[in-house]
Amino acid sequence: MHALVIDDSRTMRMMLARQLEHLGFEVLQAGDGQQALEVLASNRDDLPVLATVDWNMPVMNGLDFVKAVRADNGLRDVTLMMVTTEAEQGQIVRALAAGAHEYLIKPFSAEAFVDKLDYLGVKPGRGAA
């Protein structure tokens, strides 16, 4: 089962990928929203169940990525979790309204990340194989 990590910081991508791999995901990575859409397009028949989405990125930011995914019916099964340093309440409301399912503010603990995945029910080994 795939997960897609979208962040312009390689460090953050590695940190998230490490945790997701530990949980049993195969991890794809993208450095901005545009790249992430390309990754999704080339994985149409085996879409990631989860994408973690940073907000501030070059080329295409995370909010626009979320909107693009939500506008595409073929991508509706991808669970979107914002993982970002944007911490204002208004920003969280905006991202949820745009179609993000969850929102995790950096910095976060490893437990918090796993809690959220558990809650979203996207653990590998559960749900669609």
Binding site: A87, I92, L96, A100, E102, Y103, L104, I105, P107, F108, S109, E111, A112, D115, K116, Y119
Partner: peptide, 10 residues
Amino acid sequence: QLEIGRGLPA
């Protein structure tokens, strides 16, 4: 921030 993140859906 760290406490609120533990288990509370956004």
